[in-house]
Design a binder for these strands. Structure first.
Length: 322
DNA sequence: AATGCTATCAACCGCGCAGCC
DNA sequence: CGGCTGCGCGGTTGATAGCAT
């Protein structure tokens, strides 16, 4: 038996809404409130599918909708949030009062994604690109990313907190030994080599240059704003095809730094490896990170091995970059 | 003026989850 | 616990407007 359609499509109107239909829907909802979308069309005397009514109300008729063009400030927010959240339009929309997910999605697809492609191409002409690795402590994305949200999830703000610790020993992923901070159960591990001049070799193929790296020395914690940091990623032409799937893996040598990054309330994730314990003196911790970016369209694949021993890093990468 | 192309965005569609029974 | 229903989500389509030739 197949899935029951959301409504009986026979005899129902499709396509653009007329002013009269809008008026009817608006009056009905103002009088009776939202909800019961399936029965709403019948009760309101509309020859429309309930879903269509819901969409029309949410995207067009609601009183709290903001009209007019997306402002540059809003655009900025969209870019940053998209880099952080990916195509989670409803979540992005929740940070832009008066804007709908559909509106933002359309705006992204028609304006921003193109702009970003342009910037990317421009950067491809050179050899570097600014990559946004800003991530926030999102609850894990559900399978398929769709479906109704839980009540708490829908009502609550997404908490953004990233914790960075130094001075911890992080066991090798290959050692099978997990001490404090090891994420064996999640198999999330990243390794970054940091060189004295500030260059970070990643996976032996890409280079990260952290500009303004730094954390606050006292508490070593960052909020989202602080986490937004500039990271320049350079790649060899040989890896041009790989830019969509590079990993931050490699091995630590001497003078390396381990940084563990953990989303609030979640199991910790590591940037580190078989390294000596970090000391705050060997890691420059003087200014806030400033991940600035575009690169929402860059995907980081898990499990790709560009050189070092690779631990499963899908969760870290998707958390950092999805 | 006619035609073709492109950009925009409203609306549709299918899927998957939460919640109810 | 399982089935069903309703809702919310993201991807896609298609109508329309605007611009170029």
């Amino acid at each position: 038996m197949g899935r029951r359609p959301c409504c009986d499509k026979v005899g129902l109107k499709k396509g653009r809404w007329t002013a009269e239909e809008d008026d009817r829907l608006k009056k009905y909802i103002l009088a009776n409130g939202e909800g019961s979308w399936r029965s709403l069309p019948k009760n309101a005397g509309l020859l429309r599918c309930g879903k269509s009514c819901r969409l029309r109300w949410i995207n067009y008729l609601r009183a709290d909708l903001k009209r007019g063009n997306i402002t540059s400030e809003e655009e900025d927010v969209i870019i940053k949030l998209h880099a952080s959240l990916g195509n989670r339009w409803s979540l992005i929309a929740s940070h832009l009062p008066g804007r709908t997910d559909n509106e933002i999605k359309n705006y992204w697809n028609s304006h921003l994604s193109r702009q970003i492609q342009t910037i990317r191409r421009r950067n491809d002409d050179g050899d570097s690109v600014i990559v946004d690795v800003a991530r926030i402590s999102l609850p894990p994305r559900r399978k398929g990313g769709r479906g109704r949200r839980r009540k708490e999830e829908a009502e609550g703000e997404v908490e953004v907190e990233v914790e960075v610790e130094v001075g911890r020993e992080i066991p090798s992923p290959a050692s099978g030994v997990c001490g404090r901070g090891c994420v064996d159960d999640l198999r999330e591990e990243e390794t970054i080599n940091k060189w004295p001049e500030g260059r970070h070799d990643v996976g032996g193929s890409e280079t990260l240059n952290y500009s303004n790296d730094v954390l606050e020395e006292d508490e070593m914690s960052l909020d989202l704003d602080e986490l937004l940091t500039n990271v320049e990623v350079e790649w060899d032409e040989d890896y041009e095809d790989e830019i969509h799937k590079f990993n931050t893996t490699g091995t630590c040598g001497s003078n390396t730094d381990n940084v563990s990054v953990a989303p609030a309330g979640a199991a910790e994730m590591e940037l580190g490896g078989d390294c000596s314990p970090i000391s705050s003196s060997s890691f420059s911790l003087n200014s806030p990170w400033n991940w600035e970016s575009f690169a929402g369209d860059i995907e980081w694949d898990a499990g790709e091995n560009f050189g070092g021993a690779v631990a499963e890093s899908e969760a870290v990468i998707s958390w950092l970059l999805s």
